[in-house]
Amino acid sequence: MKKAIAEFIGTFTLVLFGCGAAVIAGLGTGPTAIDVLGIAFAFGLAIVTMAYGIGPVSGCHVNPAVSFGALLAGRMTTDDFVRYVIAQVLGAIAGAAVLYLIMSGKAAGWNGGLGRNGWGPGYLGEYSVVSAFVFETVATFLFLVCILGVTQKGAPTHLAGLAIGMALTVIHIVGINVTGVSVNPARSIGPALVSGNAVAIGQLWLFIAAPLIGAAVAGLLFKSGTLAADES
């Protein structure tokens, strides 16, 4: 139960602060406005803070794709995987719900969005579904390579949280204009469901499938020993 609570809090934090940066600060003007770099660092720093806050309890997955990669790498049980995913999705929904409550108090200028992921006409850079799928798959794969690499035996684990947070930051810098960046099914599910946006809900399949595929490849590479550190 401690692990599930930690994962709930961690995913709640990621969605509230990451998506909150995009929705709240992204609506600002002048000195209160932030750009892609600011949003990217909000997501990355949220992961860094939670990595050191709840990492000792649950490992700070806060992402079903990370848990799936860890499962296939042989680093967690199926029972724990199911508990983690449930807690992560509920945490993301709760984070999006709190963000909705905050934004609903804004007098004007809010269109009801909660930092959803997407692609196609009318969404950010208007990239195609193929571009979105390729980015989400490859970015999640590389994210998992970082996570599984810096948390394996022999790695300097005291720096793991910083490395993982920086990896998520650079992924956002590159990919925000493509999909808004998911690499995390829970992060996509929360804002889509709470906002009730039909397009966002209809596009959720990509932000579930692509991250899981990327995570699976990384997990299997570590399980096979291909990316495992040599033991001295």
Rank of each mutant, 00 (worst) to 15 (best):
G91Y: 08
A65L: 05
A160R: 00
M50L: 08
I147Y: 06
H61D: 00
L114A: 04
G120L: 08
G28D: 03
G28S: 04
Q88F: 00
F207A: 04
N177M: 12
N177K: 14
P31D: 11
V57I: 15
A42M: 03
M76Q: 13
S224T: 12
T11Y: 00
I39F: 01
I54H: 06
G20K: 08
P31C: 06
S128I: 08
A42G: 03
Q152T: 07
F17Y: 13
V129D: 02
H172A: 12
P211H: 09
M76G: 07
N63S: 11
V150N: 01
V66L: 11
V85N: 15
I34W: 05
G55A: 07
T137K: 06
E231D: 13
I164N: 01
A97I: 11
V145K: 01
I164K: 04
S67A: 14
Y123W: 14
S195D: 05
I54D: 11
V194R: 12
L204V: 11
N197Q: 12
G161H: 02
T49H: 03
I39W: 01
G10A: 15
T11C: 02
I147L: 14
T140V: 10
K106P: 00
H172Y: 10
V178D: 01
L99N: 12
E7A: 13
R116K: 04
I9Y: 00
K106W: 13
P121S: 10
F143A: 14
G154D: 11
K153H: 11
D230Y: 07
T77H: 09
I208E: 05
S128N: 04
G219R: 01
P185I: 03
A73T: 10
A51K: 00
S224M: 11
G59E: 02
Y52G: 02
V23C: 13
A132S: 02
A139M: 14
A160P: 00
D79L: 13
V199S: 12
L206I: 13
A87Y: 03
V181G: 04
R75G: 14
L162I: 15
A139D: 11
A198I: 12
V134C: 07
A200R: 06
V138M: 09
L227S: 09
P64H: 03
A65T: 03
G180F: 07
D230L: 13
V62T: 12
G55M: 08
I201C: 08
A94L: 04
F222Q: 01
V130S: 14
G225F: 10
V15N: 06
T78C: 04
P31N: 10
V85E: 10
Y52F: 10
I24H: 06
F8G: 08
S224G: 09
G38I: 05
A33W: 12
L221K: 06
G120V: 09
T169Y: 02
A94W: 00
A210C: 02
A51S: 12
L101I: 13
P31F: 06
I54S: 08
K223Y: 09
G122A: 02
N117A: 11
L159V: 09
L227E: 12
N111A: 13
T157C: 00
K106C: 06
I93E: 13
S67T: 13
T169L: 08
A40G: 15
G20H: 03
Y84L: 05
G118S: 15
A198H: 07
I147S: 10
G154T: 08
S104V: 09
I171R: 09
G165V: 12
C19D: 07
